[in-house]
Design a protein around this nucleic acid. Structure first.
Length: 717
DNA sequence: GACCTGCTGCGGATTG
C-alpha cells in the first residue's frame, strides 16, 4: 500500500491531517517515485492534490543530510510560490527541513540565511534562477550542486512557450554544475502531447507519465445574444441574463479581455445596486493592483457562504488557491481547449451537485468556435504544444548570459557549452557562428584575443532589469486614488484629465496625469468607459477550425444549446448549405462568389496556416482582406481563376524563405513576437518566423490538397 | 479579436 512506502514523519503528517484516503494520483506517485529515480510527469486536474503527490514521496526518500539544497521547486508564478510555501512548510515541519522562497519579492534576509546554511527546499521562478546564474554563479554552485530533485509546477504553462524553452536551458545548465544526476518531476493538468512533456525533462526515455483522467462533471449551457446594432459593448439583455444566472452563486466570468472584464464587473455591480443584490463584484487581471488582486483571492478562498462574482482573465487560470466556484462563465469564444480545461477546473462543489458552465456568445462564429472547443474537450482532445527545435533567439540570450556568468569565455568554450545544451541540439554550428558574429558586430560581445567578453552596448543589455526573461512588458501608468494604487493602464488617447475609466471593478474620473512620473490620480465617478488595452490576436489550432467546418456541414443537434443558440447555428448552417459540402468534409473548403469580381474563401485553417497564406498572397500582389474570426479571405480574383492562383502560390511557397525575408524588410517588427529576435542576423530571424509564426508545411499542404466548393451568391446570402 | 508571466544591486529612508 502506498501509505506504507512513506517515511514515518510523512505518515505522521498524513495521520495528523486525518485524510481518509490518498487521492489516486497521490497513491500512484508514491508507488512510483519511492521505488525509482526516473523522472515523472504527474497529470491530473486542478485541486487533485498534485503538490502532495510529488512531495510526499520525494520528502520520504531524499537525503537531507547531504550538503546543499536537496529539492528545487520551480513555479511560473510568484503568487503560486507564496501559496505553495505554506503547504510545503507545514509538511517540512515534520522533518525539520528549512523551506526558502527565492524570487524577486522574497525577503533578502531569508536568502542570506540560506546562503549561510544551504539546505532543504528552495522555491524559485525561472527568471530568478537565470538572475542567479548571470549575477552570482557561485551561489548556484553553493546552493544547487547537490540537488536530488527538481519539481516543476504547472509544467503545461511552460510547454510550447519561449519561457518553457528558457527553463529547459536553465535545467541543462543546472545539470552541468551538479555533482550527480537529479530527477525531475513535472506537475500538470491534462496535456495534449505527452511525448513532448517527456522531452521537457531532457531525458525522455527516463521519464514516465502518471495520468489521472477523472474529468470534471459539468452541466453545460450555451446562451446566445445577438449584438445590439452599432454597440461595441455587450448586449444589455446578456448582462441582465448574466446577472440572473450568477447573483446567488460563486462565479468566475471569463470575457477574454481586461477591458471587458472591467465592463462586466461594473455593470453587474450597478444592476446589483439597483435590485439590492450582494456587493461582492470584483475584477481580476494583470492591470489590477497586486494587493487588490490578493484581497480578491483571499475573499474567494476564505468566505464560506457569501456569493461573489469575479470578472477575470487568464490570471485566474493557473493554480492559485481560490477555493472552488459553482459557476464558470465564458463570454464569447474559448481561446483554446487548454485554457477551457483550466477554467472548468476552477469549479467543483463538494455537495455532489455538478457545477455549471455557461458559454455566452454574441456572434454566430464565436458560438460555432465555442461549441467546437467544447465538443473537442469532451472528446479528450487537447492542443498538442510543441517546443521550438531551433530557438535562435534563446540561443542569443543564453550566449550573453553565459558570457556574463563566466566574466568572459573563450569562443570555442562558449560554442561548446551552447551545443551541449539539449534545447539547441538541432541548431547547426554555422548558425551559432552567425549569431555570435552579429553580437560582435553590435558590440553586444567584444573579442579580447581568444576571449569573448560582454561589449560596451551589451553591458546595457545584460545589466538591465529586463534581461532575465524571455518575454517583454508594455509600459503603463500607475493609477492612484487617495495614495493607494488601484492598478495600471497603458498609454492611450484615453489617458487625459477629466476622462472616466473603469478599473478594479470601480468607475473613476482622471484628476491628474503625470507622464514623467507615470502616475494617474483618480477620484470615484458614477460611470466610465472600459479601459483600452492593446494586444495581438491569438492562434487557433487547426483542429478547432476543422471541427467548426464539420459542425457546419452536419445537422447534429446539441442539447446544451438554448433556443437562440440553436437558431443562430441553424442560420449559419443554412448559409453554407449551398456549397455542396460532404457530410464529413476533409479537404473541401467553401468559396463564395461575390459581386464585383471578388471571392470569399473560407479556409477553416489554423491561424498559422492563414498567416502563411496571407504572406504568399502579398508576395503574389493579390489584393485581399482577412477575417480571422471566420477564417476567411476576401480576394480580388474571379472564381474561375482561383485554381491558377493556388498553383502560383504553391510556386511562391517554394521560395518561402525569400518571401519571409521580403516581409521582414518591409516590416521589421514582424520578429518582435520573440523578445530577443530583433538582435539576430536576418537569415536567423527568417528561421525563427518560419518555425514559430507561420506553419509552412501546413500552408503548402493546404494549397496542394484543398478542393474548392463554390456556391452562387443567391443561394448563400 | 487576447491573455499571462518576472526582475539586480545599491543606497538610503523607515521601522521594530
Amino acid at each position: 500500500m502506498a501509505f506504507d512506502l512513506l517515511s514515518e514523519p510523512i505518515r505522521r503528517y498524513i495521520r495528523d491531517r486525518r485524510w481518509e484516503a490518498l487521492r489516486p494520483i497521490q497513491a500512484a506517485a508514491i508507488e512510483h517515485i519511492t521505488g525509482s529515480d526516473d523522472n515523472f510527469i504527474l497529470a491530473s486536474r486542478t485541486a487533485s492534490g498534485k503538490t502532495e503527490a510529488a512531495f510526499l514521496p520525494i520528502l520520504s526518500k531524499v537525503d537531507f543530510g547531504r550538503l546543499g539544497v536537496a529539492v528545487l521547486y520551480v513555479s511560473p508564478l510568484i503568487a503560486l510560490i507564496n501559496d505553495q510555501f505554506q503547504r510545503i512548510e507545514q509538511l517540512c515541519q515534520y522533518l525539520d527541513v528549512p523551506v526558502t522562497k527565492w524570487h524577486g519579492e522574497a525577503s533578502r534576509g531569508q536568502k542570506q540565511r540560506l546562503l549561510r546554511q544551504p539546505a532543504g527546499i528552495v522555491l524559485i521562478t525561472p527568471e530568478s534562477l537565470e538572475a542567479m546564474f548571470t549575477n552570482a554563479p557561485y551561489h548556484v554552485k553553493t546552493l544547487f550542486a547537490g540537488l536530488q530533485y527538481v519539481v516543476i509546477d504547472e509544467i503545461h504553462a511552460f510547454l510550447g512557450t519561449d519561457r518553457g524553452l528558457h527553463l529547459q536551458a536553465l535545467l541543462a545548465r543546472l545539470a552541468a554544475v551538479n555533482r550527480a544526476r537529479f530527477a525531475v518531476v513535472g506537475l500538470s493538468a491534462t496535456i495534449g502531447d505527452y511525448a513532448e512533456a517527456k522531452r521537457f525533462t531532457g531525458e525522455p526515455e527516463r521519464t514516465k507519465v502518471l495520468l489521472d483522467r477523472t474529468a470534471q462533471e459539468m452541466r453545460t449551457q450555451f446562451r446566445y445574444f445577438a449584438p445590439e446594432k452599432g454597440a461595441s459593448d455587450l448586449p444589455l439583455d446578456l448582462l441582465k441574463d448574466l446577472y440572473k444566472q450568477t447573483s446567488t452563486s460563486k462565479a468566475l466570468i471569463f470575457p477574454n479581455s481586461r477591458g471587458l472584464a472591467e465592463f462586466i464587473a461594473v455593470k453587474l455591480r450597478q444592476i446589483a445596486d439597483r435590485v439590492q443584490g450582494h456587493a461582492n463584484y470584483f475584477s481580476h487581471h494583470s492591470s489590477v493592483d497586486k494587493e487588490v488582486r490578493e484581497y480578491v483571492e483571499y475573499f474567494a478562498k476564505n468566505n464560506q457562504r457569501l456569493p461573489f462574482c469575479i470578472a477575470c482573465t487568464s490570471t485566474l487560470e493557473l493554480g492559485i488557491d481560490i477555493g472552488s466556484v459553482d459557476k464558470v462563465v465564458q463570454i464569447d469564444t474559448a481561446q483554446s481547449i487548454t485554457s477551457l480545461i483550466q477554467r472548468v477546473g476552477r469549479s467543483g462543489r463538494r455537495d455532489g451537485e455538478p457545477s455549471q458552465l455557461l458559454l455566452y456568445a454574441t456572434h454566430p462564429w464565436s458560438l460555432l468556435q465555442s461549441l467546437a472547443c467544447w465538443l473537442l474537450y469532451q472528446e479528450g482532445f487537447v492542443e498538442p504544444l510543441r517546443q521550438a527545435r531551433q530557438p535562435h533567439d534563446l540561443l542569443l540570450h543564453q550566449a550573453l548570459a553565459i558570457t556574463k556568468e563566466l566574466s568572459g569565455v573563450g569562443r570555442a568554450e562558449l560554442v561548446r557549452r551552447l551545443r551541449a545544451n539539449p534545447v539547441f541540439a538541432e541548431i547547426i554550428p554555422a548558425d551559432i557562428n552567425a549569431m555570435l558574429n552579429e553580437l560582435l558586430a553590435r558590440d553586444w560581445l567584444e573579442a579580447l584575443g581568444p576571449e569573448l567578453i560582454v561589449g560596451v552596448e551589451g553591458e546595457f543589455v545584460v545589466n538591465g532589469r529586463d534581461f532575465y526573461s524571455m518575454f517583454r512588458s508594455e509600459p503603463a501608468l500607475k493609477v492612484f486614488y487617495a495614495g493607494k494604487t488601484v492598478g495600471e493602464i497603458p498609454y492611450s488617447p484615453q489617458v487625459q484629465e477629466q476622462e472616466n475609466l473603469l478599473l478594479a471593478a470601480r468607475t473613476w474620473k482622471i484628476k491628474e496625469v503625470d507622464f514623467a512620473a507615470k502616475r494617474i490620480e483618480v477620484v470615484p465617478a458614477n460611470d466610465g468607459k472600459k479601459p483600452l488595452f492593446f494586444g495581438g490576436g491569438g492562434t487557433v489550432h487547426p483542429r478547432i477550425r476543422e471541427k467548426m467546418l464539420h459542425l457546419l456541414a452536419s445537422d447534429s443537434q446539441h442539447s446544451e444549446l438554448d433556443a437562440a443558440s440553436q437558431e443562430a447555428l441553424r442560420v449559419l448552417r443554412r448559409t453554407f448549405a449551398g456549397f455542396g459540402l460532404p457530410a464529413v468534409p476533409t479537404h473541401e473548403r467553401p468559396v463564395l462568389a461575390k459581386s464585383g469580381g471578388e471571392v470569399k474563401l473560407y479556409t477553416f485553417a489554423g491561424t498559422r496556416v492563414n498567416r502563411g497564406l496571407a504572406l504568399l498572397l502579398e508576395a503574389a500582389e493579390v489584393a485581399f482582406s482577412t477575417d480571422e474570426r471566420e477564417s476567411s479571405f476576401t480576394l480580388a480574383v474571379a472564381p474561375a481563376l482561383l485554381p491558377a492562383l493556388f498553383a502560383q502560390l504553391r510556386l511562391f511557397a517554394d521560395d518561402i524563405d525569400f518571401h519571409i525575408a521580403q516581409a521582414l524588410a518591409a516590416t521589421p517588427g514582424l520578429i518582435d513576437f520573440a523578445k530577443w529576435g530583433a538582435a539576430l542576423p536576418r537569415p536567423l530571424q527568417v528561421a525563427v518566423l518560419k518555425e514559430r509564426y507561420y506553419d509552412v508545411a501546413g500552408t503548402q499542404n493546404f494549397l496542394r490538397d484543398t478542393r474548392l466548393c463554390s456556391a452562387i451568391p443567391a443561394a448563400a446570402e
